[in-house]
Design a protein around this nucleic acid. Structure first.
Lengths: 342, 342
DNA sequence: GTGAAAGCGCTAACAT
DNA sequence: ATGTTAGCGCTTTCAC
């Protein structure tokens, strides 16, 4: 037997399609209990489920949002996507996933195909954005939320989620200070990345507020990878008057530093305190488990969807006023930090 | 100005909608070059793009596939999803992503909503499947490809991708043997998981083929995590007549063993050779970098889509004959294996 | 080769 | 409170 349509339900219940449609959509102008029940029974009997495609064609809404990420294989983005999907489903939206794969053209193609599919909105959770993308989206009147990474937002109507690194890094500094440290190092990611500079500046800025000038802090530029952390760690440990605490730009660097310390026969946190940033799963598994500034990846995705839903649900009047919000970072204290040896 | 429709194009080109539709779809019954060009010009002038929703309503195809995974945050699945998305886009399909979150009910809800959206097919890339899901899919005539994990497939018409662990593990055994090892250990994941048993059996089976009976192999059951590997590693290194080579059920366990060796002052691969399984990114970053049996996660996703497309494109005649295929594992030799000390 | 007309399954005025 | 009538933007016979 063919899949039942709204018409079949109407016939079975002895009412019109409109009436069925109304009970389907929980219409305000209320239906007599009696007929509502008839209709519901017919729906149940036939196992009727409305065809979303047809529904979208008339209603102009697809209950669908597109999520563009640089690359789902990157654990950062996969956590973001997880947050997106959870909240979306919860609000009965479905999500189209697109990997930009760090390719501007592919991003454009993806955006076009999502527009053709009439997604209600698009989330661009990527390390880079392109003005062309935003133009295309704007031209088609698609609401968009971007991850405010190192993105120069030139358009006025773009909503964004941004990350407050300062708050968590500030906690890290206070933690270290309260432990009694006063000689610090920072191992940063590539300085050409805005996020590397943000993390470094937050660290140096916070120390400065506590009377420790940037010049007194050893800064080593590295590559955000374990091997880079290992090298930087060795450098630090070979210093004449070496720092007692080091803040790494991410957890991989921190892990590399831990590994370097093992190699050099230094103990963490006994001889050296180490703090990372991200709170990737590995952070809890290292030896010792890493004290780190957690970056709320899942939350970023969740908030992005919530922002989108707000955008989608608000009255025309307030349209075009972008929503901007911020997620906080916070320090997670594990075992890689302790008071310095005297 | 409103978004142009096929009718606008028809008017602009002075032809009928049917004709426009034909050039849009590259119809066989060919159009006069002249009119085709007129139409194409009108399309370009208006910047017309066909509305996929409308198109799907009539054509009964959405050019969309749904991918259900246990959890995208799990690096295994995010790689699979990456493979899925790449191939899908390449074939101009879009993909709906759904996280089952290890929740049978949620899976059912997802499947229902994907059916309502008339996806052309569904990929279930999850550690578990439910007969109810498959029933629902079957009832709605939706083609499905499952990841043949530890899934008891009771239905006859399900296509599946499976993983050949034996081939890669066999290579690992031969590698170890050729290096001169003859005393082995295996650290396995939880034995209640089919995949743990598969990996162990492949290892023991391969050794047996080479004349080394299972009884001579030390097997420790653990938990697929770094800490589990650390504990198991310590156990192994404290053994009186300790093995010279250990095969770990996954890379995390192997990493833990490496870490245990460091702690015990043993050198890898000097004192102990270690082989992992998975080839997660961490495997290349450990110290030493890990020799491991690579599990082709991306390939699994890619193959799943290809299988689906084959299912979707074949003539009705051959319908209901499931396609089953296999991806191979293979050994990647890095620095954690070497000849045993005499 | 091309056009006219019907219809996909639903929603949304507009009546009643 | 419920039914009637138009579409939504395409594809697809069936004519010519």
């Amino acid at each position: 037997m063919p899949i039942p349509t709204i018409e079949d339900v109407a016939n079975a219940a002895g009412v019109s399609k409109s009436t069925v449609s109304r009970v389907l959509n929980g219409e305000y102008t209320y239906i007599r209990d009696n007929t509502r029940i008839k209709v519901q029974k017919a729906i149940a009997d036939l196992g009727f489920r409305p065809n979303s495609v047809a529904r979208s064609l008339t209603s102009k809404r697809t209950q669908t949002i597109g999520v563009l990420v640089s690359d789902v294989s990157n654990p950062f983005y996969s956590d973001v996507v997880h947050g997106v999907e959870d909240i979306a489903i919860d609000q009965s939206y479905n999500v189209f996933l697109g990997n930009i794969n760090y390719d501007q053209q592919r991003g454009m193609a993806l955006i076009r195909s999502l527009i053709d599919r009439r997604v209600d909105g698009i989330l661009i959770m990527s390390s880079t954005t392109s003005d062309e993308w935003l133009d295309e989206l704007d031209r088609n009147n698609i609401p968009v939320v971007v991850l405010d990474w190192d993105i120069p937002i030139t358009k006025g109507t773009i909503s964004a989620i941004s990350v407050d690194f300062e708050i968590g890094i500030h906690q890290a500094v206070e933690h270290l200070l309260s432990l009694g440290h006063h000689k610090f190092a920072h191992v940063s990611g590539p300085q050409r990345l805005q996020t590397s500079r943000d993390r470094m500046n937050a660290f140096l800025g916070s120390l400065a507020k506590h009377g420790i000038p940037a010049e007194e802090v050893t800064v080593i530029e590295s590559n955000f990878r374990i091997d880079g952390g290992r090298e930087a760690g060795i450098q630090i440990m070979e210093m004449a008057n070496r720092p007692t605490a080091v803040f790494a730009g991410n957890d991989l660097l921190a892990h590399g530093i831990l590994s370097a310390a093992h190699m050099q026969g230094l103990s963490v946190p006994g001889d050296l305190s180490v703090i990372g940033l991200d709170d990737i799963w590995l952070a809890a598994e290292t030896d010792p488990p890493l004290t780190t500034v957690a970056l709320p990846r899942y939350e970023i995705g969740a908030l992005a969807v919530r922002t989108m839903l707000e955008l989608l649900n608000r009255p025309k009047a307030e349209e075009s006023e972008p929503i901007r919000s911020t997620v906080k970072t916070n320090l997670i204290i594990r075992k890689s930090t302790a008071p310095p040896k005297m």
